[in-house]
Simulated scan of single mutants.
Amino acid sequence: MPTDVTQRQRLLEYLEFHAPARARELEGVGVSAATISRSVLSGEILRLGRGLYGLPDSTPDTHETLIEVAKRAPKAVICLTSALAFHGITDQLPRRVWIAIGARDWEPKITYPKIRTVRFREPYFSGGVEEHQVGGTTLRMYTIPKALADAFRNQRLVDRSVAIEALKAAIEQRKATPSAIAEAAQTYGAWNQMRPYLEAVTSNG
C-alpha cells in the first residue's frame, strides 16, 4: 500500500537522525502504530525498550541513554559520573544516568533508562550548565570544571579515586585549565577537598 510505504520511509528517515525515538514522536510525524509494529516484525527497526525504537544497522550511540533521559526530563542536568563519562575524562560507565534537579523540583519518574537523581540547591544546580546537541536532542550538562567540583564535593556519591583520575585526565587532555578547575572548585564548595590533588597534578606537569 502506498500509504504504508510512505509511512515506512518517513519512519526510517526520522530514526536516521533522531534515534532513539519514542512511539509518540513517530506518531507525531505521521507514522502509525501499525506501521511501527510491522517494521519491528520485519526487522527494519528495533524495539529498544517500552515504546522506544531505533535502527538495527546504526552505529550504537554511546550517549543513547543520555538522549532518552534528556527527552523525558528536559529540565534536569546530567551530572557527576555521567557528566565525567560524557566529557571523556573517566573510564567509569555508570549503570544509571546521574541527573541533578533543583531543591524544589518534582523528581522525574523514568523507568527506562535507569536514573539516579540528586537534588542540588543553588548555586550548585544552575551554575556551570552547558548545552550539547546530540542526536537532535539538547543535553543539559555540567561543564568539566563544575562536574569535577561536584565529584570532589560529593565523596559519598563519587569515589575519590574516580574524581582524582578525572581531574588528571582533564588536565592531561587539555580539556580544562587548572585555573578554570580551581575557580569552579572555589565557587562550588570543593576547594578544600580538591586543592591538594590539583596542586600535585600541576606540580608534576
Results as ranks from 00 to 15, higher is better:
Arg10Asp: 05
Leu11Gly: 13
Leu12Trp: 03
Ala19Leu: 03
Ala21Lys: 07
Arg22Lys: 14
Arg22Glu: 10
Arg24Cys: 08
Gly28Arg: 06
Val31Trp: 02
Ala33Trp: 08
Ser37Ile: 10
Arg38Trp: 03
Leu41Arg: 15
Ser42Lys: 12
Arg47Lys: 13
Tyr53Arg: 07
Tyr53Met: 05
Gly54Asp: 15
Pro60Ile: 02
Pro60Thr: 06
Pro60Tyr: 00
Glu68Gly: 01
Ala70Glu: 02
Pro74Trp: 00
Val77Asp: 06
Ile78Glu: 11
Phe86Tyr: 15
Ile89Trp: 02
Asp91Glu: 05
Pro94Lys: 09
Val97Pro: 04
Val97Asn: 05
Ala100Cys: 07
Gly102Trp: 02
Gly102Glu: 04
Glu107Ala: 03
Glu107Trp: 00
Pro108Gln: 10
Thr111Leu: 02
Lys114Val: 01
Arg119Gln: 07
Phe125Cys: 00
Ser126Lys: 12
Gly128Gln: 06
Val134Ala: 03
Tyr142Phe: 12
Leu148Phe: 01
Leu148Ser: 03
Asp150Gln: 08
Phe152Met: 01
Leu167Gln: 11
Leu167Met: 13
Lys168Asn: 11
Ala170Asn: 01
Ala180Arg: 05
Ala180His: 05
Ala185Leu: 07
Thr187Lys: 15
Ala190Asn: 06
Pro196Asp: 10
Leu198Asn: 09
Glu199Val: 09
Glu199Gly: 04
Val201Pro: 11
Val201Cys: 03
